[in-house]
Write a protein that binds this DNA or RNA. Structure first.
Lengths: 273, 273
DNA sequence: ACAAAAATGGAATAAAAATTCCACACAGAG
DNA sequence: CTCTGTGTGGAATTTTTATTCCATTTTTGT
């Protein structure tokens, strides 16, 4: 007897053997199929109570399906909960785990990044707060000149935005730090302008400092960053959150780029009106 | 002190109080925000190990946020896990929405780009030719210095590649055309180097010309472009095809960026061997 | 630089949970 | 109707897990 390793296998096994099971085990099987979340999260006695059986029956049940005990079977339900459960950060981790054993054919690498990118985009859809997004558009739309600040990995995003804003005839300045003039470029920002800053952990100190200074001068700051702990979140008028997935120790820009593009299009639409 | 009852409240509390927390508690807060699933499913000692803290610190952490103990706090994470999972399953994804009749609310714009990005990534998986990909890696791996040429919309991709190659300690030169020196920069390319050019229609004349000249000097040219009609395809040793989807008259860079990233990782892996 | 207070690590302890065990119930065969 | 074997409830036991406690270290305020 070999225990099902995946939720799908287990589900299948439960269905096939359902008829042959004893009264109590049948009862448990039905409960398990109806309440997989309970199976994943509750304790033996908790489930026993809800399903109106004895705790020992649950152990017998698990053993009847080849597991060493209830806990081992519960792991199958837990894994399923995480994997199906949209929390995409955990999906990154499962990429990482596969990686250690998988052979690296070229295709697997591309597939991983494609999957990662898709997951990141899916996540983007969920985490972007429409109110914040609208507020960001408003600040940018009202700005005379948009200043763009980003360094290192985020720089390409700013670079893309500079290109796209120019297409819209929206004036902007890309603070590229050329010639070590990062702050000099940044300090030419005036009342009526706005700063759009992009940075992810580990946050570029220059960008963080510029954001703070600009805010202190009462100039609107819109930022794109990762999560509530970011120093940009705290010092911006509005902060859009993105989290690109890290696969094979590298972080893509697919989600961030898509957000940037959306920002541009929404801004363009607003300017037309 | 009242303990946050929902995940969102907790998340918020973690963020606002993050700065005032002690070193260990801060560390735990970061881990919790990054790995909510672990917080939901793992045991105290399991989490302690992964987050590199003592089990007792986790209990202190929970108490610092008003819970009676770790278990009470964990319930918040578990509830969130179940609820976010349920939403995910119910979500419907509809591609190819009817743009003409749809009202353009802010969300629809983001959804369109997300869908477009996903479609582009899916497509990328299909169209990338593994042999060409491998050949590209080979040329780049053997190059002494990689020259990167791209203009306008493609420039951010080159910019990202420059950053990533530097991370790999792979020497590269980003031909940015600063000071109108595009060709001057490009002509410093030597035997033993390679050119990586990125351009899409309408093709940048500078990049096309540089590709031709470089090829004539028998220096390997790898390019990223769109389809067989591209002048880059015809004048490169190997050309990787990508097609980012155009939505609302704007073209994203999600797929191209993902291809670039994959190139970097594959190259990095090859260099390690 | 010092004392006081806060934070930390790690072992000790308490609590909770999983698992085992056994007496009993119940169905089917003789 | 009783014997036999499987199934079941529930208490006892073992294992795992959470929590507490205190000696030690680190920070803070003077």
């Amino acid at each position: 007897m070999i225990a099902p390793g995946s939720y799908e296998e287990l589900r299948n096994e439960l269905a096939t053997r359902h008829e042959d099971l004893s009264k109590r085990l049948k009862q448990i099987a039905e409960y398990a199929l109806d309440n997989p979340n309970d199976m994943a999260l509750e304790t033996v006695s908790g489930i026993a109570e809800r399903a109106s059986v004895q705790p020992s029956s649950l152990i017998r049940f698990a053993k009847a399906f080849g597991y060493s005990g209830f806990s081992e079977m519960q792991r199958v339900f837990r894994t399923h909960l995480v994997e199906s459960g949209a929390n995409y950060k955990e999906r990154i981790r499962s990429f990482g785990r596969d990686d250690e054993t998988a052979e690296y054919t070229r295709n697997i690498v591309l597939d991983d990044f494609v999957d990662g990118g898709i997951a990141a985009l899916d996540n983007l859809r969920e985490v972007v707060d429409p109110d914040k997004f609208e507020a960001a558009i408003k600040y940018l739309g009202e700005a005379d000149v948009i200043y763009l600040a980003a360094q290192r990995r985020s720089f390409p995003v700013a670079s893309y935005l500079a290109y796209a804003f120019a297409q819209l005839d929206k004036r902007c300045v890309l603070i590229d730090g050329n010639g070590g003039m990062f702050f000099e470029q940044g300090r030419s920002i005036r009342k009526g302008d706005a700063l759009l800053a992009i940075s992810f952990k580990s946050y570029s100190p220059e960008v963080v400092q510029l954001v703070k200074e600009t805010r202190e001068n009462n100039i609107p700051v819109v930022s794109i960053s990762d999560g509530v702990l970011s120093p940009l979140t705290q010092n911006s008028d509005v902060c859009l959150e993105v989290e690109d997935i890290e696969v094979h120790a590298f972080r893509s820009l697919a989600a961030t780029m898509t957000l940037a593009l959306t920002l541009v299009v929404a801004l363009g639409r607003q300017l037309q009106e």
